[in-house]
Design a protein around this nucleic acid. Sequence first.
DNA 1: ATAGATACACACTTTAGGGTAAGTACTTGT
DNA 2: ACAAGTACTTACCCTAAAGTGTGTATCTAT
Lengths: 131, 131
Amino acid sequence: MTAIKESSTIQENKLYNRSECPVIYVMDKIGGYWKPVILFHLLKGGKRYNELRKLIPTITEKMLIQNLKQLEADGIVRREAKAVVPPYVTYYLTTAGEGLRPVLYAMASWALEDQQNTKGAPAKQLKDFPA
Amino acid sequence: MTAIKESSTIQENKLYNRSECPVIYVMDKIGGYWKPVILFHLLKGGKRYNELRKLIPTITEKMLIQNLKQLEADGIVRREAKAVVPPYVTYYLTTAGEGLRPVLYAMASWALEDQQNTKGAPAKQLKDFPA
DNA sequence: ATAGATACACACTTTAGGGTAAGTACTTGT
DNA sequence: ACAAGTACTTACCCTAAAGTGTGTATCTAT
C-alpha cells in the first residue's frame, strides 16, 4: 500500500524529525487529510466500515481502508470482524486512540476560536464535537 | 509560491472538510512537515531567520521562508524587519500562534506516552519541550 | 440465475508538497 | 575590487499522497 522509496531526502528528514519532534511524531500518525476526520467520528464510538463511508461522503473507499489500515498498524484503532456474510466489520479506538481525545479537543477549540477571530467560515458549535 | 490548481477534487475536499472539521482546519494551518517544527522553536521566543535555520539544520531555505510566509498569512506568526543592512528580521508568534501552545503540548505528551508504550525510539524528555 | 449487500484489493493517473541549485540586493570590512 | 553576511526569490525536478475506476468473495433474497 503506497510503496515508499528508500533513502530519499524527504524520508531521511521524516525519520530525523520524528525522533526529534513529538509533533511530527503525531503528524505521522494522525496527519493527512482523512485520518483526523475518521478519528473524529470514532470518538463517538465504534463504527462499521459502511457507517464511516456514509459519515464521510467525500472520502473514497481506497482512502478509507488505507487510512483505517494505517491507523490499525499504528495501534490507534482496533478492527473487529464477525465471521458472517455479508461481512460485518467494526472499527474502534484503542486505548492509545482514546488518548488522542485531548489532542483533538485542543485542536478543535483552537480552530473554533480562530475561525471566529478571522471571521472565516461560520463556526461550527463546540457541542457538535463528540463528547 | 507552490501554485495550486483550481477545481481539483482534492481542493474541493479540502474546502469542504476545512469548514466541517475543526481538526482539518488546524492541519491546514500547522500541517506539513516543517510548520510544527518552526512553531516548536518559536514557542521559546522570537527568532531571527538565520537563527531558525541553525536550529533546524535539515530544512532548506525555500521551505523555511515558504512556511514562514504561510504562517504569517494565516496570522500565526508576525514578521518584524528592521530597516538595516544586512537585514534583521525576527519572527514572533502572534496571539493566535500562542494559542497553539496547548495544542502542541497535547500532541507532545501523547507522543511521548505513545513512544514509550510502543517501545519505539527512545523517548525525548518532556522537559525539553519549551515552557 | 441473478441482483444486492459488504468489505475490501489493485492498477493507473494526477496533484501538491518538498528538494536542488542557483541568483538577487544592499551595505560593510579588507 | 571583492568577498561576506542576511534575507530572501525563482526555476526546475521528484516523490508520496490522494483520486479514479474496476474487480473479488460470499451469502441471501427474489
